[in-house]
Lab assay of single mutants.
Amino acid sequence: MQRVNMIMAESPGLITICLLGYLLSAECTVFLDHENANKILNRPKRYNSGKLEEFVQGNLERECMEEKCSFEEAREVFENTERTTEFWKQYVDGDQCESNPCLNGGSCKDDINSYECWCPFGFEGKNCELDVTCNIKNGRCEQFCKNSADNKVVCSCTEGYRLAENQKSCEPAVPFPCGRVSVSQTSKLTRAETVFPDVDYVNSTEAETILDNITQSTQSFNDFTRVVGGEDAKPGQFPWQVVLNGKVDAFCGGSIVNEKWIVTAAHCVETGVKITVVAGEHNIEETEHTEQKRNVIRIIPHHNYNAAINKYNHDIALLELDEPLVLNSYVTPICIADKEYTNIFLKFGSGYVSGWGRVFHKGRSALVLQYLRVPLVDRATCLRSTKFTIYNNMFCAGFHEGGRDSCQGDSGGPHVTEVEGTSFLTGIISWGEECAMKGKYGIYTKVSRYVNWIKEKTKLT
């Protein structure tokens, strides 16, 4: 034993070699072989497995989906700052455009905790909710729209109204504003409101030439003092309507412009014939205590009207009353817009006519005020429907199939267009061939041609 100890002390290297040989010859039971080890760690190889990531292109799944990435790591994937920024906006807080917040056709661009709407022409605001041009839906104005110097929408209202708090709607500024039905039992019968379409306001006024200088022999019209197929109006439903009495009662109609003036057809009036105007009328054979009678003290036909040349060209006249009318729910003026808007309103496509005229061709006159909704007829169809001249200051309205029309005794009465609950004068009943005849239409004086003249002559002093 002493000898062994001496050998170990003198030859430590020998001992180490012996131990190493023993270990190498022993069977290893701690580690699995290569094949079995792979069965336990069965993990798919990654895209760049075996390579240094710093030297390969980034992978979106590896960089940002398996674990949260930084902007720089995302930049490695896209290799483009702009594309990385677009991805980053949604990656950080989701897609803010998912709810489609942009209105009126706006395009949404996502941002971090926010979004941006790219608005089409005519709109602005956070969600493109603000109209900035009158060309689109009248700028959301209830009545009139004008573009300011910086191309912003400025709404306005006709006389007797003021802008509401929203700067879009119009509200009454006087007790009985024009064009409004205020009798409670008839307010439910107000005709369907007309909503502004998209309009090209630059070209809204037709490029028409008034044929002022045409000389033409007097034409022989049949029954051209021209509501057939209409309905009984309720008291106060058309408070701007008046009836004219002269040699015979209810020979023509008219509309209240203001307390002192009536507008009617020029062919209705004769110099030297006494005319009485009755406002607030409903049943011409009954006294309903809503009527107001006034005498006409002055007749002003349009300066281009000449019955000797043509009885229905420039067929418009103004009547001055001896005493002002007292405005109330049964006696209310009709609204008159400017030339541009009167023309736009007419193009809405349908209007209402009213009167006490004959209820059928050569038949009896109506006792109760009649009204009828009539569609506008395109000019080409209008011209083809008659052998008589249709001037540019006239328009056609009615039904091709016949059966409904204005008729004798309705002449001078109103053709009105309702705009968001307020009625505007767009025409004056003038003439036609018979009444409600198939293929024939009622012919009306186009008020847009005469609004400046009306307003100039009827100013209240």
Rank of each mutant, 00 (worst) to 15 (best):
Gln2Trp: 15
Gln2Ser: 08
Met8Pro: 14
Ala9Phe: 14
Glu10Leu: 11
Ser11Lys: 15
Leu14Cys: 12
Ile15Leu: 08
Ile17Tyr: 14
Leu19Ile: 13
Leu20Gly: 02
Leu20His: 02
Tyr22Met: 14
Ser25Gly: 12
Glu27Trp: 04
Cys28Gln: 05
Phe31Asn: 11
Leu32Phe: 08
Asp33Leu: 12
Asn36Arg: 11
Ala37Val: 11
Ala37Glu: 02
Asn38Ala: 12
Asn38His: 13
Leu41Glu: 03
Leu41Thr: 04
Asn42Ile: 13
Asn42Pro: 05
Arg43Met: 01
Pro44Thr: 15
Lys45Pro: 04
Arg46Trp: 01
Asn48Cys: 00
Ser49Lys: 06
Gln57Ala: 03
Gly58Arg: 00
Gly58Trp: 00
Asn59Ile: 01
Leu60Glu: 02
Glu61His: 04
Arg62Asp: 00
Met65Asp: 03
Glu66Ile: 05
Glu66Ala: 05
Glu67Arg: 00
Ser70Met: 05
Glu72Trp: 04
Glu72Arg: 04
Arg75Ser: 07
Arg75Ala: 11
Arg75Met: 11
Val77Asn: 07
Phe78Tyr: 09
Glu82Phe: 04
Thr85Pro: 03
Glu86Cys: 04
Lys89Asp: 12
Gln90Cys: 07
Gln90Ile: 11
Tyr91Ala: 05
Tyr91Cys: 04
Tyr91Ile: 06
Asp93Met: 11
Gly94Ala: 12
Gln96Gly: 13
Cys97Ser: 03
Glu98His: 11
Ser99Phe: 10
Asn100Tyr: 12
Cys102Pro: 02
Leu103Lys: 11
Asn104Arg: 05
Gly105His: 12
Gly106Ile: 02
Ser107Trp: 06
Lys109Asn: 11
Lys109Cys: 04
Ile112Lys: 14
Asn113Asp: 13
Trp118Ile: 15
Trp118Pro: 05
Cys119Thr: 02
Phe123Ser: 06
Gly125Ala: 03
Asp131Cys: 10
Thr133Ser: 14
Cys134Tyr: 03
Asn135Arg: 12
Asn135Gly: 13
Lys137Gln: 13
Asn138Arg: 09
Arg140Val: 07
Arg140Asn: 13
Cys141His: 00
Glu142Trp: 06
Phe144Leu: 05
Lys146Arg: 13
Asn147Phe: 13
Asn147Ile: 10
Asn151Leu: 11
Val154Asp: 09
Ser156Val: 07
Ser156Asn: 07
Cys157Gln: 00
Cys157Ala: 00
Thr158Trp: 03
Glu159Met: 08
Glu159Ala: 10
Gly160Ile: 01
Tyr161Pro: 01
Tyr161Cys: 00
Glu165Gly: 10
Asn166Asp: 08
Gln167Trp: 08
Gln167Ala: 08
Gln167His: 13
Lys168Tyr: 14
Pro172Arg: 06
Ala173Ile: 12
Val174Arg: 09
Val174Pro: 02
Pro175Ser: 10
Phe176Ser: 05
Pro177His: 02
Val181Gln: 11
Val183Trp: 09
Gln185Lys: 13
Thr186Asp: 15
Ser187Cys: 06
Lys188Pro: 15
Thr190Ile: 14
Glu193Ile: 14
Thr194Trp: 12
Val195Ala: 14
Phe196Asn: 15
Phe196Leu: 13
Asp198Thr: 14
Asp198Met: 09
Asp200Phe: 11
Tyr201Asn: 12
Tyr201Phe: 14
Val202Phe: 11
Glu208His: 13
Leu211Gln: 15
Gln216Glu: 11
Ser217Leu: 06
Ser217Ile: 11
Ser217His: 08
Ser217Met: 13
Thr218Trp: 11
Gln219Tyr: 06
Phe221Tyr: 10
Asn222Val: 09
Asp223Tyr: 07
Val228Asp: 10
Val228Cys: 10
Val228Lys: 10
Glu231Ile: 09
Pro235Thr: 07
Gln237Lys: 05
Gln237Arg: 06
Pro239Thr: 02
Pro239Gly: 02
Trp240Cys: 00
Trp240Pro: 00
Trp240Gln: 00
Trp240Tyr: 03
Trp240Asp: 00
Val243His: 07
Gly246Val: 05
Lys247Met: 12
Lys247Asp: 15
Val248Ser: 13
Val248Gly: 14
Ala250Glu: 08
Cys252Asn: 01
Ser255Asn: 04
Ile256Arg: 00
Val257Met: 03
Asn258Arg: 03
Asn258Glu: 02
Glu259Leu: 04
Val263Cys: 03
Val263Glu: 00
Ala265Gln: 04
Ala266Glu: 01
Ala266Gly: 05
His267Trp: 03
Cys268Asn: 01
Val269Gln: 03
Glu270Arg: 10
Gly272Asp: 10
Lys274Phe: 06
Thr276Val: 09
Val278Arg: 07
Val278Phe: 05
His282Glu: 04
Glu286Ser: 11
Glu288Thr: 07
Glu288His: 08
His289Ala: 07
His289Val: 15
Asn295Lys: 11
Asn295Phe: 06
Ile297Asn: 06
Arg298Cys: 03
His302Tyr: 07
His303Asn: 09
Asn304Lys: 09
Ala307Asn: 08
Asn310Gln: 07
Asn313Trp: 08
Asp315Met: 01
Asp315His: 01
Glu320Pro: 00
Asp322Trp: 02
Glu323Pro: 05
Leu325Lys: 01
Leu327His: 04
Ser329Met: 09
Tyr330Asn: 05
Tyr330Glu: 04
Val331Lys: 00
Pro333His: 02
Ile334Cys: 02
Ile334Met: 01
Ile334Lys: 00
Ala337Ser: 03
Ala337Lys: 00
Asn343His: 07
Asn343Arg: 07
Leu346Phe: 05
Leu346Glu: 04
Lys347Val: 03
Gly351Glu: 01
Ser354Phe: 07
Ser354Met: 12
Ser354Leu: 15
Gly355His: 13
Val359Trp: 10
Val359Met: 15
Phe360Arg: 15
Phe360Trp: 15
Lys362Val: 05
Lys362Gln: 09
Gly363Gln: 10
Gly363Val: 07
Ser365Tyr: 12
Ala366Trp: 07
Ala366Asn: 15
Ala366Arg: 09
Leu369Asn: 10
Tyr371Met: 13
Tyr371Asn: 08
Arg373Gly: 05
Val374Gln: 05
Pro375Leu: 07
Asp378Pro: 12
Arg379Gln: 14
Cys382Val: 03
Cys382Ala: 03
Cys382His: 03
Leu383Ala: 15
Arg384Gln: 15
Thr386Asp: 05
Lys387Val: 05
Lys387Met: 07
Phe388Asn: 09
Ile390Cys: 04
Ile390Met: 09
Tyr391Ala: 12
Asn393Val: 03
Asn393Pro: 02
Met394Thr: 05
Met394Phe: 08
Phe395Gln: 00
Cys396Phe: 02
Gly398Trp: 04
Gly398His: 04
Phe399Asp: 08
His400Ile: 11
Glu401His: 11
Glu401Val: 09
Gln408Leu: 12
Ser411Glu: 13
Pro414Glu: 04
His415Lys: 00
His415Phe: 15
Val416Met: 10
Thr422Asn: 04
Leu425Glu: 01
Thr426Lys: 00
Thr426Trp: 00
Gly427Ile: 00
Gly432Thr: 13
Glu434Arg: 06
Glu434Trp: 09
Glu434Asn: 15
Glu434Gly: 10
Met437Ile: 13
Lys438Met: 09
Lys438Thr: 14
Lys438Ile: 06
Lys440Trp: 04
Tyr444Val: 05
Thr445Ile: 06
Val447Glu: 00
Val447Met: 07
Ser448Gln: 05
Tyr450Arg: 01
Tyr450Asn: 02
Val451Ile: 09
Trp453Met: 01
Glu456Gln: 12
Thr458Leu: 03
Leu460Pro: 10
